[in-house]
């Protein structure tokens, strides 16, 4: 490994992991009025703070439910565990919901990963190109995402965005299925009822028959293709 590659690997480890950098790295840095560790901390803090801000900006609704301190804490764990793989922050956070699934403190707010999935779908579609699909079999549109939740994810979203009062959400009322659709340059969130959900499952299995539901879901932009 070249000297430059060794320094970069050492700094990367110190920045991603946080805490005291290893001795070899500290010895390579000129100290002066500040210690090498204090100087390294500028970069360690910068990494954590800027990525935390980027994640919090993508998931504002999740934060309404668990608060800023919790979000910052869990974002910090995620950043250490899964740092970005590309210099394109609009793509960073795609796996945050899956990470939350395996994060024990989330048990206090078990619906949180699905709120995050919904917010990610909105974010992802907002920076996507609208695909034109009028050929091929009827299927889930590339301009649509479906979040089938065990929790009332749409009511939670409405409460989190201030459209209904929090007391109007009953967590025990059963799950909801949300569709997020990009159409005519705008991203919209809609509810899918059980018949529509069943139709999606049937389509995936190649067992759907032509019916009014398909026409309606093509109109909604949830489905694409030739009926």
């Amino acid at each position: 490994m070249s000297d430059l590659a060794r320094i970069q690997a050492g700094m990367k480890a110190a920045i991603v992991k946080g805490g005291e950098p290893d001795t070899a790295l500290l010895e390579a840095v000129v100290a002066g009025k500040l210690t090498s560790a204090q100087r390294m901390r500028v970069h360690q803090n910068n990494f954590r703070q800027t990525l935390t801000s980027a994640l919090l900006a993508i998931f504002p609704v999740a934060q309404v439910f668990v608060g800023e301190a919790f979000m910052k804490g869990v974002a910090g764990k995620f950043i250490t565990s899964e740092p970005p793989g590309a210099p394109m922050l609009s793509a960073y956070g795609a796996t945050f919901a899956d990470f939350l699934d395996g994060f024990p403190p989330v048990a206090q707010a078990p619906y949180l990963p699905d709120i995050v999935r919904l917010e990610w779908a909105v974010h992802e579609l907002q920076v996507s190109n609208e695909h034109v699909v009028d050929e091929g079999p009827v299927r889930l549109s590339p301009n649509a995402r479906v979040i089938d939740s065990r929790y009332p994810v749409l009511n939670l979203w409405m409460a989190g965005t201030g459209q209904i009062p929090p007391e109007a959400v009953n967590l025990k009322a059963g799950g909801q299925c949300a569709a997020v659709v990009l159409a005519f340059g705008e991203v919209r969130i809609m509810a899918l009822d059980s018949a529509e959900k069943a139709l999606l499952v049937a389509l995936e299995a190649g067992a759907a028959k032509e019916d009014a539901g398909i026409a309606r879901m093509l109109d909604m932009g949830v489905l694409a293709g030739k009926a």
């Binding site: 070249s2 000297d3 430059l4 590659a5 320094i7 970069q8 690997a9 700094m11 990367k12 920045i15 991603v16 390579a28 970069h43 910068n46 990494f47 800027t50 990525l51 980027a54 740092p83 970005p84 793989g85 590309a86 210099p87 922050l89």
Partner: peptide, 25 residues
């Protein structure tokens, strides 16, 4: 500056040792 090592993006403009080797890089 540099910001990528081992395929990880560190979201910062990080300093380089200013050497003949790094100049070539």
């Amino acid at each position: 500056a540099w910001s990528v090592s081992g395929g990880t993006y560190l979201n910062d403009l990080l300093p380089l040792p200013l050497t003949v080797e790094s100049l070539d890089v």
